[in-house]
Amino acid sequence: MSKTGGGYWRRLVRRLTSDVSELDADDLSERSQAGGAQRACDCECGQEAVVLGRLRSVGLSPKASAPTLEAELFDGTEGVTLVWLGRRKIAGIEPGRLIKARGRIAVRDGRKVLYNPYYELQNTA
């Protein structure tokens, strides 16, 4: 059996035996790297980073005194919280949307955060 055939069968068996969330995470991770973004798990505090992933949740921060929109971006490896200070809503920023965000990584409560990131909405196809 050739290497290509063995690789094909191995991928097929993995696709048939893995759960959907694991497969989705793998697809997101591959798409992120193909889109020229860094893996969130490799980003460090203080580093300028570009991350690409799907928004898992979007909402107003209950902790902030001023309006603060927060969204959790997941790229298949780890989550990054996107925070827009002084905003209640941004058109296109909604759960399930694919987004590419750029900014300087900070850490808040042990989680990676991008404050007021530059962003691009991505096509889902």
Rank of each mutant, 00 (worst) to 15 (best):
K3R: 15
L121A: 07
A66V: 09
R87D: 12
S65A: 09
E120Y: 05
R104L: 04
W9E: 08
Y118E: 15
G7W: 03
T77Y: 00
G46D: 10
Q38T: 02
W84C: 05
I90F: 02
E72P: 02
D24T: 11
C43G: 01
D75M: 07
D42K: 00
E78N: 09
G76D: 05
W84V: 10
V13T: 08
E44N: 12
G53L: 06
S21A: 12
V51L: 15
A125M: 07
F74E: 00
K100R: 11
G92P: 08
T4R: 13
Q38M: 12
L16E: 13
P95T: 00
A101W: 04
I105R: 01
S61N: 09
L69C: 01
F74M: 04
G36C: 07
I93F: 09
C43V: 03
G79V: 03
L55T: 08
D26I: 04
E44G: 04
E78R: 11
V20W: 09
R102Y: 06
A40T: 10
R15K: 13
P62C: 07
R15G: 10
L60S: 13
Q38E: 01
L28F: 06
G92L: 12
W84H: 10
Q122A: 09
E78L: 07
V80H: 07
M1V: 14
G6C: 06
A71Q: 02
Y115H: 10
R11A: 15
I99C: 08
Y119H: 09
R104Y: 00
V107F: 07
G6E: 15
E48M: 07
G96A: 12
G7H: 10
L98E: 04
L60N: 12
Q122G: 04
A101I: 07
A40S: 13
T124A: 14
G96Y: 06
P67E: 05
C43P: 01
A49G: 06
R97E: 14
R39F: 02
E22G: 01
V50C: 13
V80P: 03
T81I: 12
V58W: 05
G5S: 13
A49E: 04
T77V: 05
P95S: 07
R111V: 03
E30N: 12
F74A: 01
P95Q: 07
G76F: 04
T17H: 04
A64D: 07
D27M: 14
M1D: 08
G92S: 14
G6F: 11
G79D: 08
A64F: 10
C41A: 13
L73W: 06
V50Y: 06
P95E: 05
R15D: 15
W84R: 10
E70H: 00
L52R: 15
R108T: 00
G76W: 03
Y115L: 12
G5T: 14
S18D: 13
I105D: 01
L82R: 05
D24Y: 04
E70K: 07
T68R: 07
S65K: 13
I90W: 06
I93C: 02
S2V: 01
N123W: 03
G53Q: 02
E94K: 14
R88W: 11
S65R: 14
D42S: 15
E120D: 14
V13L: 14
L55P: 03
R54G: 01
P95W: 00
P67I: 03
R14P: 02
Q38K: 13
K63F: 12
D24W: 00
E44I: 09
S61K: 01
L28H: 05
A25P: 02
R88N: 15
D27S: 14
